[in-house]
Simulated scan of single mutants.
Amino acid sequence: MVLKVQEKSPLKYPVVRQMACLDPAVIYRDPDSCRRQMKGLVKTFLEVKQVTGISAGDVILEQFGALLSLEGRSEEFHSFQPMQKRVDVFLRDVLSEPYPDLWAFCQKLLILSHGQASVERGFSVNNQVETTNIMGDTVVARRLVCDYVALHGGVTKVPLTKELLKSVEAARTRYRDYLTEERRKKELEAKGQKRKAAEDDLEELRKRKKTILEVSQGLAREADKTAEEAEAKSGTKMAELISKSNILRKGSKQKLAELEILEKEIEAKGAELRKIE
């Protein structure tokens, strides 16, 4: 079991272990060890070309040495509590101005350790606040409440400010406004769906009109062609061609009649669409 944990642990990587030199308390307690670890980190970054040039690495080590000798001896480093202040925020405040190259290098190091822990903790909180048929906005609201309570260290420690009390007083009004807005959105959505359905129907009718017109014209052309062929024939063959021509022309007229009905449907659907607008 222990071997399995060690295998999965990021501590098996030297870079991760060497990043202990960024701990303010360790900087105060064991500066020599931190200096060795920082040298190892700079060497690794030089090898993978994440630090450009040996001179840049020397500047980083020089600034880190100055940090160990000066700021690293202060009370802030000695009394640093990771549960009260984030390491990246602390280092930014200390390093960003006097040691810009060192701070840029530390930023690269800190990015390496970014995992999914905060996201997964959020999933855990979501699981606690969720109930059956809960809406997304309610989840967000409950998460905000949980985060705010956690920020102040418990329900009894949340300050009852004037703004908070006013917000509670106006909660019912905001809820009614929310319901009104939701009804308006649903009405607009229903109207949009109805309009979309009408537009689709109208487009389908227009496609049918185009198809029927093409069929009617094709039948008419075929009837004319057959009639011309009949003129050059005689007897039974001529009679057959004339009969065929008449059938084709009748079919063309039927399609034209369908077109008239379809035109009325298109006009009615267009009027319906204009009413929706």
Results as ranks from 00 to 15, higher is better:
20 A>R: 07
21 C>I: 02
23 D>E: 12
23 D>I: 02
24 P>Q: 00
27 I>V: 07
28 Y>N: 05
28 Y>C: 06
29 R>E: 09
34 C>F: 04
35 R>D: 11
38 M>F: 07
40 G>R: 10
40 G>N: 07
43 K>H: 14
43 K>A: 13
43 K>D: 11
46 L>N: 04
48 V>Q: 14
48 V>P: 06
49 K>H: 10
49 K>N: 11
50 Q>F: 13
52 T>M: 15
52 T>E: 15
53 G>E: 04
55 S>V: 12
57 G>R: 01
58 D>T: 12
58 D>L: 13
60 I>A: 02
66 A>Q: 14
66 A>N: 14
70 L>I: 15
72 G>R: 07
72 G>K: 00
72 G>D: 09
72 G>C: 06
73 R>T: 08
74 S>C: 02
74 S>D: 01
78 H>G: 11
83 M>A: 15
83 M>Q: 14
85 K>A: 14
89 V>D: 13
90 F>P: 00
91 L>F: 00
96 S>I: 14
100 P>F: 05
101 D>G: 06
101 D>M: 14
102 L>T: 03
102 L>S: 03
103 W>S: 02
104 A>K: 11
105 F>M: 06
108 K>L: 10
108 K>W: 09
110 L>A: 00
110 L>N: 03
117 A>P: 07
119 V>D: 00
121 R>F: 05
126 N>M: 10
127 N>F: 12
127 N>E: 08
128 Q>P: 05
129 V>Q: 06
129 V>M: 03
130 E>N: 10
130 E>C: 13
135 M>I: 00
136 G>H: 11
138 T>Y: 01
138 T>R: 09
143 R>L: 12
147 D>A: 13
149 V>R: 05
150 A>F: 10
151 L>G: 06
152 H>K: 02
153 G>Q: 02
154 G>Y: 03
154 G>V: 04
154 G>S: 01
156 T>F: 15
157 K>C: 10
157 K>D: 11
158 V>S: 00
163 E>M: 03
164 L>W: 08
